[in-house]
Computed example of a mutant assay.
Amino acid sequence: MQPVSIASVVLIAGLAASPSLAQQAPTPGPYFVGNPLGLPVNPAADGAFVPISSNVKVFGAIYATESCSYDPERDLIVAPARGVSQAVQENNAFVALINHDGSVNTARWIGVQNPQQRAALQPPLILNEPFGSDIEGGILYMADRDGGTADPADPTKTTPSVAVIRKFSMKTGEPQGEVKIEGSSWINDIEVAPDGTIYASNTGVGGKEPQPDTWQVWKVAPDGQVSAWIQGAPLNQPNGIAFDGDGNVVVVNIGSDEVLTFAAADAKLLKTEKAAQAGNDGIVVLPDGTKYVSSVINGGITKLTPDGTASLIAENIPSAASMCYDAGAEQLVVPMNANNGLAFVSLDQ
């Protein structure tokens, strides 16, 4: 089983993103407090600080949210919260429903029960540590995982981690099945086609000793058959996935500034574009072909027009993760990972 550490992302962005990231002893230093919203999150030695863009509004109380999806039926934002780490407590995650203005509609929609109560539900609820999410055909899909916890037979070891895509009814919130990706210990973002085909990214290992064979996009067919759809270059620690208007698969990399478009039929690379920043996480594609890309490393939102022109429309959003498009309010909603908040960027300008 392949490691999924993305230590380069964690160290730069100050995230606890990878479930397999090894614990490191802290470096002794003076006491400090965090900066206001902007970058860097922690005070720089030279005092450098740049505030978040004035056109960005941030609302908190959304715990450890990595992704979001827009529910057109409720006209609300669906925000999965990872809760505490799987290694701390299993089955702790939940899903909140958020209004357009950032206020909370439902604090805990899926997962209002505590972990001890969930096993007794009919059907039982399991939601451990969801990252990517998508809504398609009345189903909420979430990129979850099992394992990665203390081994009962030997507490000094951990059980193997395996990626699981869990499905829930958007009408009732009830579980609708799951698919395990046995070849991957963790996946980041997902995108689901109308026929139920799922595309999922494994960011893999980057940094000073990159492992390109761990950079993957997985494909889950409607019948549940799982395959590694793309592996290695031109992927470079892939994260965000979306479809364009032609049904092609668009992928953004953390390890570069590239925005890659692949044919869904055969995974052929059709187009390579460049965002205004590298270190990207989220991708939104509008019907007119305009793409928006969020940089979890550098904090900017790139607008990428169909002719390939890239410009920053917002800057210095800490840990700008896998954003979604809120069509009901014509805005981008940007989860901020460990900052426990959502940023809102209006496109109605």
Rank of each mutant, 00 (worst) to 15 (best):
L260E: 11
E191K: 13
N236F: 00
G232H: 00
Q225K: 15
P222C: 06
K219Y: 10
G245M: 05
D189E: 15
A228G: 01
P238Y: 13
Q216R: 15
Q211I: 12
N239V: 09
V249R: 02
Q216K: 15
V250R: 03
Q231V: 14
G247K: 03
A233P: 15
N253E: 13
S201C: 12
S185P: 13
W186E: 14
F262K: 05
V220S: 10
A228P: 06
G247D: 11
D246S: 14
I187C: 09
D195K: 07
G245T: 12
V205P: 04
N248R: 04
Q225H: 14
G204Y: 00
D246Y: 12
A233S: 09
Q231D: 00
P210C: 02
G207D: 08
T261Y: 00
A233D: 04
P234A: 12
G247H: 05
D195S: 05
Q225C: 01
Q211S: 08
G204F: 01
I254F: 14
G255K: 06
D244Y: 01
D257F: 01
G183W: 08
T261L: 03
A242G: 07
V205A: 00
V192F: 12
W229S: 04
W186N: 10
F262Q: 04
L235C: 02
W186F: 14
G206L: 12
K208D: 15
T197P: 00
V217N: 11
P234I: 09
D195V: 11
I241A: 07
P238I: 08
K219W: 13
V220D: 05
T261S: 06
V250D: 05
G247Y: 11
N248Y: 00
D244L: 13
Q237F: 02
V252K: 10
W229T: 06
I254Y: 15
Q211R: 13
S256A: 07
V192W: 10
A228H: 04
W215P: 00
N253I: 10
D244E: 07
V259C: 08
P194H: 05
V205L: 11
V226W: 09
V205Q: 04
W215R: 09
V249F: 02
S185A: 13
I198N: 09
G255D: 03
N236W: 01
Q211K: 15
N188K: 01
N188V: 07
F243R: 13
Q225D: 10
K208C: 02
P222A: 09
T197E: 12
A221Y: 00
N239L: 04
A233W: 03
N239F: 04
V251Q: 07
